[in-house]
C-alpha cells in the first residue's frame, strides 16, 4: 500500500509534523465517526486508502488471511450507503458509538514521501440494544502535506481479534 510518489512537490520544505498534529488529527477523525459524518470521514482517506481490522494479532497479510473488516474506498462507500438503506434491518435501531483515543506515538516519518506511521490505543463503545466494548491498537499510515493528513491505511488490532465477536456495525 506504499507509494513512493510524494503528494506534495515541495515536501522537503514542509514542516515536520509533531505528535500534537497527529493527535489532533486522530481526535478529529474519531469525532467524525461519533457524529456519524460518514462521507466527511471517508474523505480523510487517500484515493486508495485502506481500512483494515485483522482477525489475528500480528496478521501480516490482508489478502491471504481472513479479516474482520477490510475495506477499500469502494467497499466503504457500499457500507456508508447501506447505513441509510431503509431495509438494512441489522441497523435498526441505528447504533451509536463513542471513541476514546490515547497513547499516541509517532513511529516513523519519511521526509521525502511525507509518510508518517503512528500508533495509538483506543477504546470504542458501540450501543445498539446493548453496549459493546472494544479496545486495542490503531495504526495509521498518514500522508502529510505540510498542513494536514490523509489516511493511506488505518489498521485496527482488537485485543480480542481472534475471540468470539458479536455483530459490529460501525467503524472503530
Amino acid at each position: 500500500m506504499t507509494s513512493a510518489t510524494p503528494l506534495h512537490p515541495q515536501t522537503s520544505q514542509m514542516a515536520r509534523p509533531t505528535r500534537q498534529d497527529v493527535e489532533d488529527f486522530l481526535i478529529e477523525e474519531a469525532a467524525l465517526l461519533d457524529e456519524q459524518e460518514w462521507d466527511r470521514w471517508n474523505d480523510l482517506f487517500t484515493d486508495d486508502g485502506l481500512y483494515w481490522v485483522p482477525a489475528t494479532l500480528g496478521q501480516e497479510d490482508p489478502y491471504t488471511h481472513v479479516s474482520i473488516m477490510l475495506e477499500d474506498p469502494l467497499l466503504r462507500k457500499v457500507r456508508i450507503k447501506r447505513f441509510s438503506a431503509p431495509d438494512a434491518y441489522s441497523l435498526q435501531p441505528f447504533p451509536r458509538s463513542v471513541h476514546l483515543i490515547s497513547n499516541v506515538r509517532i513511529e516513523d516519518y519519511d521526509e521525502d514521501s511525507g509518510l508518517l506511521k503512528c500508533r495509538a490505543k483506543f477504546i470504542m463503545l458501540e450501543y445498539q440494544r446493548k453496549t459493546q466494548t472494544y479496545g486495542g491498537t490503531v495504526r495509521h499510515d498518514l500522508r502529510w502535506d505540510g498542513d494536514t493528513f490523509k489516511i493511506q491505511q488505518k489498521r485496527v488490532d482488537l485485543i480480542n481479534a481472534d475471540g468470539v465477536l458479536d455483530c459490529i456495525n460501525l467503524y472503530f
Binding site: 481472513v66 479479516s67 457500507r79 434491518y89 455483530c167 456495525n169
Partner: peptide
C-alpha cells in the same frame, strides 16, 4: 471477509 465476518455485510443481515 464479505459474507462471514460479524462486521461486514451479508453475515449481519442473516444474524439479525
Amino acid at each position: 471477509n464479505l459474507i462471514n465476518s460479524s462486521a461486514m455485510l451479508v453475515g449481519p443481515d442473516d444474524a439479525e
